[in-house]
């Protein structure tokens, strides 16, 4: 008996054949090769932390979030579709990259971080240490008490003061 080929379950599409665009309401529209149009749809990264351009799922924009198709490599999309998708993903996954720490103040278990990011200077609060996730290669992911997320690709490559400040927290 043949084993089930689990890869058959994947709904890959040929990126060249599909089209993504915004309609007048600003909702994302997906045009499939067979001529069907889905709207509104939302993109979702399968690996938001480790691979941001591959395996982008396109889902229905409702409670069920049903997957319509999976884009293996968004670089292969046609120019306009790619721009639209990049734009949508930028909004959907907002995660400034921290480039320098200015200060960390502790007060009764809350740490207040003042940092410089690629989006500007920001101050945020963490209420426990579990807010910082550590990954291989010095990569840090920080989730503040309001649910905002920040990334440090490799904290060991920051300036010495930032490293010292981070070392006290991780």
């Amino acid at each position: 008996m043949d084993t089930i080929n689990i890869e058959d379950e994947l709904k890959f599409v040929d990126p060249q054949q599909i089209e993504l665009k915004l309609n007048s309401f600003g909702d994302l529209e997906l045009h499939l090769p067979d001529g069907t149009v889905h709207t509104p749809v939302v993109p979702a990264r399968s690996f938001p932390l480790t691979d941001v351009t591959h395996y982008i799922a396109i889902q229905t924009d409702n409670k069920e979030r049903e997957e319509i198709c999976l884009i293996e490599d968004m670089e292969q999309l046609s120019g306009e579709s790619r721009r639209v998708l990049e734009d949508a993903l930028e909004k959907a996954y907002f995660m400034p990259v921290i480039s320098r720490l200015q200060a960390i103040n502790r007060r009764f278990g809350v740490t207040q971080w003042k940092v410089e990011t690629d989006r500007g200077v920001i101050v945020f609060d963490l209420s426990s240490r579990s807010a910082i996730s550590q990954f291989d290669g010095g990569r840090l992911l920080i989730k503040d008490i309001d649910g905002n997320r920040y990334e440090i690709p490799n904290y060991l490559q920051l300036d010495p003061k930032s490293i010292a400040l981070i070392e006290t927290q991780v």
Binding site: G26, P48, K91, A92, Y93, F94, M95, N148, R149
Partner: peptide
């Protein structure tokens, strides 16, 4: 729009 890390009012 309730997104990751930010929201948008539309």
């Amino acid at each position: 729009l309730n997104l990751h890390g930010n929201n948008i009012l539309k």
